[in-house]
Structure formats: C-alpha cells, structure tokens
Amino acid sequence: MVSSDRLLPAIGLRLLSVGLFATMNAAIKLAEVNGARLGEILFFRQFGAALLVTAVVASGPGLASVRTQRIGAHVGRAIVGVVSMAFTFAALLALPLAEAATIMFSTPIFATVLGALVLGEPTGWRRWSAVALGFVGVLIVLRPGGHSIPLDGALYGIVAALLTAVVFILLRQIGRTERAQTTVWWFSVLSLVPLGIAYMLQAQAHPLATWACLAAVGLFGGAAQLAMTSSLRRGAVSVVVPFDYSSLLWATGYGWLLFGTLPSDTTWIGAPLIVASGLYIVWREHVRRREETRSALSEE
C-alpha cells in the first residue's frame, strides 16, 4: 500500500502536469492563430523540453546517468514519438480543444488492443467490453455523417491516439532496462534532429506575441513532461493516470476563454463513455498486476 506522504505528491504532480499540458495546448493554438506553422511549433515544443530535461539531469544525477546500451530502441521511440506528436498537434490546430482532448482519451483503448495483439497480454471479456464501449464513445463524438467536428481533425486525433498507444508499448519494453529519466532525455534530444530540419524549412519572422507563444509551448511542455515523469516515480500508473481525464475541464475552460468555443452536445455524451472505458481499463490492469504479484510470491 502506498503511503500518503508519497501518494498525495504523486497525485499533485499528475494534476500539475495535466494543467501544464493543457496550457501548452492552448499556446499551440494561439501560436498558430498568430502565424506560426506546425513545423515551428513542433520544434519549439521539443527544444524547450530538451533544455529543461538536460538542466534537470545535469543538476541532479549528471549527464553520465543517461548513458545507454539501447540507442536503437531510443531512436525507434523517437521516430514514433515525433510522428505521434505531429498528428497530436495537427488535431489541436484543426479541432476545438475539448474535442481534441476527448479523442485523445481513446489512447488507453488502443493501448489495450495493441497490448493484446503485440505483447500477448491477457485481455478478458471485461476489458474487451470496455474497449467496445470506448469506441462507441468515440463514434458518438465524431458523429459520422454529421457535421459535429472537421473530418480531417478527427482523423488526425485518431491516428495520434493510436500512435501514442504505440509509444506506450515501446516505453514498456524500453522501461525494462532504462530509467524514465534516460528515456525522456534521449527522446527530447534525438527528436530535435528531424524537427530542426522541419523548422529550417518553415522558419519565418514573427511578431513578439508569436515568439512568446512558441516559447510558452516549449517551456510548459517541458515542465509538464517533468511533472508527469515525477508523478510516476511516486505513484503507480493505476493511481495517477485517472487524473489525466481532468484535462477536459482545462480544455473546456481554455476553449471558452481564449477561442469562444464550448464542447458540442455529442462530445458531452461520448466523453463519459470514453472516460469510463479508460478508467476501467486502468483498474483492470492494476488488478491483473496485483494478481500476478501475489501468484509470484506464493510460488516462492
């Protein structure tokens, strides 16, 4: 059982990361409104993260702590991560904030499917039922054949959720030998190579307000990543991940205050189904791991 002196900081850091990521997402849309292009936004997101993560590592355990024998795995994770981030940001630019956040809630659903198909993880009828419920929620939000949200933005969001689930699978495999801090650092640094090229192709002059938005994307994104990683060091995934769904409140608030948009009726109907599906999947994963631990202990 996790003690409260570790549990509360873990939850607090997770909530902080949710707020920071939501602020980053709002800055992304503001940067685009003020003339920034997708390649520029992506570069500044990772540039800011790389600076913050490097500073934290250097001031703590030192840069020697990120040495790795699995550079190939980190390169693969960086490639999938950059493509996933590009689709995520494209969805944010094409959709209202609340709808983009809601579609990204389907990531645990895709992760469950991939875990069963790729890793051979046991997935019983309960979790498959939760997966089906989640996809029903996604369909309600998308409202096929209707005019609820732009089709291109919906497709960007679904691909982003799928690729983010692939990243989760890769992180599980890398995490068997690498510390989270090492993985975050290598992703931040390696991703600057392709994003630096994209930036050079799209770089342009901007007014001060746009530069401020781009800087905010990098700083808030880097700080959010550090807070999220720190939360996982203090609390189990099953404890902290459910608080990610509070991002819908942030997205709704920022959407209304900054862009004058509110979630559609279908989003209010579909979002609870997606959230319920994700929460149940996280809970069942927690139960499964607890049963595996008990079984392993009983065999000793």
Rank of each mutant, 00 (worst) to 15 (best):
Gly134Cys: 05
Ser4Pro: 12
Gly137Pro: 06
Ala55Phe: 12
Ile11Met: 15
Ser246Ala: 15
Leu117Met: 08
Gly235Arg: 08
Leu38Val: 07
Val18His: 09
Ala86Pro: 00
Ser148Phe: 05
Ala90Gln: 07
Pro242Ser: 13
Val2Trp: 02
Ala31Gly: 10
Gly19Ala: 11
Gln69Cys: 00
Val159Ile: 14
Leu8Gly: 06
Ser231Lys: 06
Tyr254Gln: 04
Gln202Glu: 15
Leu258Asn: 03
Val138Ser: 04
Ala236Gly: 08
Phe21Pro: 00
Asn34Lys: 05
Ile71Arg: 12
Ile11Thr: 02
Ile71Phe: 15
Ala271Lys: 00
Ala98Glu: 01
Lys29Asn: 05
Ala26Val: 05
Leu133Trp: 03
Ala215Phe: 09
Phe243Leu: 13
Asp265Ile: 02
Val141Lys: 01
Thr54Ala: 13
Gly157Ile: 02
Ile79Asp: 10
Thr164Trp: 13
Leu248Tyr: 02
Gly137Ile: 02
Gly76Ser: 12
Gly12Lys: 00
Val167Asp: 01
Ser295Phe: 09
Arg67Gln: 14
Ala10Tyr: 09
Pro108Ser: 08
Ala296Met: 08
Val18Tyr: 06
Leu7Ser: 10
Thr293Pro: 01
Ala209Tyr: 08
Ile158Tyr: 01
Thr261Leu: 14
Glu292Tyr: 00
Gln181Gly: 15
Thr102Gly: 00
Ala216Ile: 02
Ala64Ser: 14
Leu249Val: 09
Gln69Ala: 13
Gly278Trp: 02
Met104Ser: 09
Glu40Val: 04
Thr229Tyr: 06
Tyr199Gly: 10
His286Cys: 04
Ile281Met: 07
Gly60Lys: 07
Phe105Asp: 06
Ile269Ala: 08
Ala154Trp: 01
Val80Phe: 11
Thr293His: 10
Thr210Gly: 10
Trp283Asn: 13
Phe43Asp: 13
Gly196Lys: 11
Gly62Gln: 06
Leu258Trp: 02
Leu162Val: 14
Leu219Asn: 12
His206Arg: 12
Arg6Thr: 05
Leu52Gly: 01
Ser148Lys: 03
Ile109Phe: 04
Leu117Asn: 04
Arg126Val: 00
Ala161Asn: 05
Trp128Ile: 02
Val2Asn: 10
Leu92Pro: 02
Arg45Cys: 07
Val113Asp: 06
Ala86Lys: 07
Leu155Cys: 03
Ser298Met: 04
Leu232Arg: 15
Gly124Val: 01
Arg77Asn: 12
Ala160Met: 14
Val80Gly: 03
Gly221Tyr: 11
Arg45Phe: 07
Arg126Cys: 00
Arg70Thr: 10
Pro96Ile: 00
Trp128Val: 03
Ser238Arg: 14
Ala116Glu: 04
Leu262Arg: 11
Thr267Asp: 05
Ala271Gln: 01
Val80Glu: 05
Phe44Gln: 07
Phe44Tyr: 12
Ala27Met: 15
Gly72Cys: 03
Leu42Lys: 01
Ala73Asn: 10
